[in-house]
């Protein structure tokens, strides 16, 4: 047994309420020109946003569907809630154990990961897989982890990343284990740049510096993850990205010297950037459209304010012949 993390089932969920970005101009204090730039230059159009919706209403449905893949008689040892914003519940309420209990997984350990912002979902799987490897000899083998994402754009302050993104609502869940039959994680790389720790409160000069390093650094992290997986960028079937905007990804594509069609950007105008959920939501879009090919490698890639650059290489389970 190699102790390789394997993604056994990924599910996602979206609020039914579709909103055009123009309709958020008042709430976000954006002028017509700024909305125009978000639409024409950044490639945004529509997103899911349900004012007043509850956190658990968003998070639980995909988590329940992912748990349907848990084999009979097997147990979930960890429930990890990965999120971007630090505060998603009123003080005194800890969302992770609430989610665990609502899913009936009372025997699991529950905790949250949000230090990597929008990279936290991939980071949570990496961290939890390491915990599961360390558990060998302490727990009965064959346990599973459940990573869940999902957060509400409850305030304009956390819905707008100036000059970058308009945040939207979505949720995802990933059931994973070690050495299972699912998609193996071939590599995971993340890098934290503490100079951008102020996140949404960065000064203009710091934002400019962040903009300068964004594309080359993300490209470099992707290249490193691909190399760690023993692959060349050209061998990757698709990059499954976060939905921050199309112009940032165009710059990353240029840095990577790969064809634009090798990065899946179709969900940018449909869903916009959904905090930590994007890469897993996009995975389900591609899978449900039959675009993930058995045996082929894919790169999940995201950037979190703060700033963390992350990339995970997985191989779609099964064989190419299948």
């Amino acid at each position: 047994m190699t102790g390789t993390a394997t993604l056994e089932r990924i599910e996602s969920g979206l609020p039914s309420s579709r909103v055009k970005i123009d309709d958020l101009a008042g709430r976000l204090g954006l002028r017509a020109t700024e909305i125009g730039v978000f639409r024409k230059i950044y490639g945004l159009d529509e997103l899911r946003y349900e004012p007043g919706g509850g956190l658990l209403d968003l998070v639980l449905p995909p988590a329940r569907r992912a748990l349907e893949a848990l084999p009979e008689g097997r147990r979930v040892d960890y429930v990890v809630f990965a999120h971007t914003m630090q505060m998603l519940t009123p003080p005194g309420l800890d969302a992770a154990p609430l989610i665990r209990d609502a899913l009936g997984l009372h025997g699991a350990e529950a905790f949250a990961v949000n230090q990597q912002a929008c990279v936290s979902s991939m980071g949570a799987i990496d961290i939890t897989a390491e915990l599961m490897r360390a558990d060998r000899g302490r727990r009965a083998p064959g346990g599973y982890g459940l990573m869940v994402t999902g957060e509400r754009a409850y305030s304009p302050r956390i819905q707008l990343i100036p000059h970058s993104a308009i945040m939207a609502e979505a949720a995802a869940a990933c059931l994973f284990t070690l050495d299972g039959p699912g998609d193996p994680v071939l590599s995971y790389v993340d890098r934290v740049h503490g100079e951008f720790a102020d996140g949404l409160l960065m000064t203009d000069d710091r934002i400019k510096r962040f903009g300068a390093v964004y594309a080359p650094e993300l490209a470099d992290v992707i290249r490193e993850a691909v190399a760690e997986a023993g692959l060349e960028p050209a061998e990757v079937d698709l990059v499954i990205p976060h939905n921050v905007n199309t112009i940032s990804w165009r710059h990353v594509i240029k840095e990577l010297e790969i064809p634009p069609e090798q990065v899946f950007l179709d969900n940018v105008p449909r869903l916009s950037h959904c905090y930590s959920s994007d890469v897993f939501v996009n995975y389900t879009t591609l899978r449900d459209a039959g675009r993930l090919k058995a045996g082929r490698p894919y790169v999940l890639a995201s950037v979190g304010l703060g700033a963390t650059f992350g990339a995970m290489v997985i191989r779609r389970s099964g064989t190419e012949a299948a």
């Binding site: 020109t33 909305i35 730039v37 950044y42 000059h163 710059h251």
Partner: peptide
């Protein structure tokens, strides 16, 4: 860059003395 596009549009609008129809 992506962070300064709005400012860029405003600069063009101001210089050309016109409103760019987005």
């Amino acid at each position: 860059d992506s962070l300064s596009f709005v400012e860029f549009i405003f600069t063009i609008e101001q210089a050309a003395d016109t409103e760019i129809p987005m």
